[in-house]
């Protein structure tokens, strides 16, 4: 197993946003996590990536414990993510956004930078290559020099993905990457995600609340409801699962 999460609990005041969730993700698959609004999907991603510290439970990536580590350490262990509400470095260029994540592979000293040594130039070149490769993978190569917050919405989401993969992570966490996209944009996105796995063999954890979107692309699906995992299996198993149907239908009725 690449990722092993056991008994994760996260409370906000009195409510348990996550109430003892287990999740095991083997190397190389696309794992989906679905669930109605407010079921705890984002909280799960936040807990895995160290943005929130879970109140209980353990999370291991490749055997290394992640709970309690600062987010940048977790990122360095090989976890990268995107955000449901986009968080780009708005005033940096598209290319620089990606470089921020890529540059950890080519550290330099401040002295190298100030004296513009060969080491610095080499590091910059390598960072740039990594960053450009990541941009090409999501199809943003032509917009490298634009300001990030000048991009249209769908491309901002793609830029977040490019930034995440530029860190060359073992595992990529995507929080509703298709939110706010048109159907065509969403389909193009799915293709990009499948491509990523083919080209760089990355493991993906994909959070969505649109069930139909994930059915075709994921290998396994876990379903959250009120902070608990109510089902897990292949897409066809999930489609038939009565608990899942009840959770989605029940919510829908309650909303209507």
């Amino acid at each position: 197993m690449l990722l092993q999460a056991k008994g994760i609990v996260k409370r906000f005041g009195g409510v348990s946003a996550l109430d003892g969730v287990d999740l095991n993700v083997p190397q190389g698959i696309i794992q989906a996590v679905i669930g109605p609004n407010g079921s705890g999907k984002t909280t799960l991603i936040n807990s895995l990536s160290g943005t929130y510290v879970p109140d209980e439970g353990s999370i291991q990536l490749n055997g290394a414990e992640l709970v309690g580590a600062r987010p940048h350490k977790i990122a360095q262990q090989g976890l990268a993510r995107t955000f449901q509400n986009i968080r780009l470095f708005g005033t940096l260029s598209v290319l620089d956004n990606v470089k921020v994540a890529a540059q950890r592979h080519t550290p330099v000293t401040l002295l190298d930078v100030m004296l513009k040594t060969g080491a610095h130039k080499l590091a910059e070149r390598e960072t740039e290559e990594r960053a450009r490769a990541a941009l090409d993978l999501v199809g943003l190569g032509t917009r490298a020099l634009d300001r990030a917050n000048a991009l249209p919405y769908a491309q901002q989401r793609l830029l977040e993905i490019a930034r995440a993969i530029a860190a060359e992570p073992l595992m990529l966490l995507l929080d509703e990457p298709a939110a706010g996209m048109t159907m065509t944009e969403a389909l193009a996105l799915l293709e990009i995600i499948q491509n990523l796995r083919k080209r760089i063999g990355i493991t993906v954890l994909l959070v969505e609340h649109n069930v139909r979107l994930v059915m075709g692309i994921s290998d396994r699906i876990a379903v959250l409801d009120f902070g608990r995992k109510i089902a897990e299996g292949t897409p066809s198993e999930i489609q038939k699962d009565p608990a899942v149907i009840a959770a989605y239908l029940g919510r829908r009725r309650a909303h209507a």
């Binding site: 940048h72 990122a75 993510r81 955000f83 620089d96 994540a101 950890r104 995440a164």
Partner: peptide, 26 residues
């Protein structure tokens, strides 16, 4: 020079979104 290096980018990234910067390994 510092502005156009990894240090400068990390600084501006920290300003623009501290959370995203951390999770990019900064």
């Amino acid at each position: 020079r510092i502005r156009n290096s990894s240090f400068g980018r990390a600084m501006i990234a920290t300003r623009d979104s501290e959370v995203a910067a951390e999770l990019s390994g900064v």
